[in-house]
């Protein structure tokens, strides 16, 4: 049961960390608003459910698009700063500002929605809507399926299309990519759109897992960063590895702590991911995918 939760959580973290890593690679912006992107998705899903009776699973394509728009808007508002070569601190502050704006919009919207629906919508879950197969929760299958589909799509895009190869080329060396005739600006734009879209989808699934309030984004952002950093912010595959490491250890360690010391320890989940993140930064600052494994092997064998 607890493993089920760990896998679901990891699946969602992978989607979110993927977006964070993607935009970090292309534009060098650590995006503190990534968590709130997901919550935008959650509230859109809630709206579709309450007003039109659409099951959240079916609204995922819509969330993909809504998320994409949020990502696009973020990039457009960061663009003047990126153009001016603003320092990374300034860019981080800008994403904090965007996060705050999103929080304001989500909070305001949740109250407006409450008035339309006629009951408070500030807090909600979808878990009660979920189906189950063989005693497993539907979200386990759906989130796994979504991750597999999106990753497969991303793989096809990145490795099998011309645009994808260009995207990878500009991630690695933007100025060389430019000399090949690639419009690096387009690939940046695309990465932000995709990042938002992935987060939007994650947002539709998140309420099956945990209760959502407008500020939930600020809570999950720690785990997202931990996942990306542990995996390595410089490689897309890092998000995948980091997502599962953080997701599973956060769930499992917290669970066993709670078993041993009582339910009060359930809140220590974020501390677990924080500790793993700091340990990674100390041992391998560029994360698991940033480690030069050949060197490590050599060192191990030479001893």
């Amino acid at each position: 049961m607890i493993i089920e939760g760990a896998i679901i959580y990891s699946n969602l973290l992978v989607l979110l960390a993927l977006g964070l890593t993607l935009t970090y690679i292309t534009t060098n912006v650590p995006n503190f608003a990534q968590g709130s992107y997901a919550i935008v998705g959650s509230y859109v899903a809630l709206t579709l459910l309450k007003l039109f009776g659409i099951c959240p699973y079916l609204s995922l394509p819509v969330l993909f698009i809504v998320g994409a728009i949020v990502g696009l808007l973020t990039y457009l508002s960061l663009k003047p700063l990126i153009k001016r070569n603003a320092s990374v601190e300034m860019l981080m502050i800008a994403t904090l500002a965007i996060d705050l704006i999103l929080l304001g919009v989500i909070g305001a919207y949740s109250e407006v929605l409450s008035q339309i629906v006629g009951s408070t919508q500030a807090k909600f879950v979808f878990a009660n809507l979920d189906f189950s197969i063989f005693g497993f929760r539907g979200i386990l299958f759906v989130s796994t399926l979504v991750v597999i589909l999106l990753l497969f799509g991303l793989y096809l895009l990145l490795y099998k299309t011309k645009f994808g190869i260009a995207l990878r080329a500009s991630m690695e060396n933007p100025s060389l990519a430019q000399t090949m005739g690639i419009d690096v600006e387009k690939t940046r734009l695309f990465s932000w759109i995709l990042s938002g879209a992935l987060a939007g989808v994650a947002g539709g699934l998140l309420p099956f897992m945990q209760e959502i309030v407008p500020a939930t984004g600020d809570l999950i952002i720690i785990s997202i960063f931990a996942a990306s950093i542990v995996g390595g912010l410089r490689h897309i595959s890092g998000a995948l590895i980091g997502g599962y490491i953080i997701g599973i250890s956060e769930s499992l360690i917290t669970y066993y702590l709670a078993m041993a010391f009582g339910a009060g320890f359930l809140v220590y989940g974020k501390v677990v991911s924080l500790i793993i993140m700091i340990a990674t930064l100390l041992i391998a600052p560029y994360g698991i995918t940033g480690v030069d494994w050949k060197k490590v092997r050599k060192r191990l064998f030479s001893q």
């Binding site: 011309k162 990878r168 690695e172 990519a177 090949m180 690639i182």
Partner: peptide
Amino acid sequence: NVFADLTVEENLKI
């Protein structure tokens, strides 16, 4: 002057 993460073929294609 080459993309290290890409294969030789991909480099030529790009």
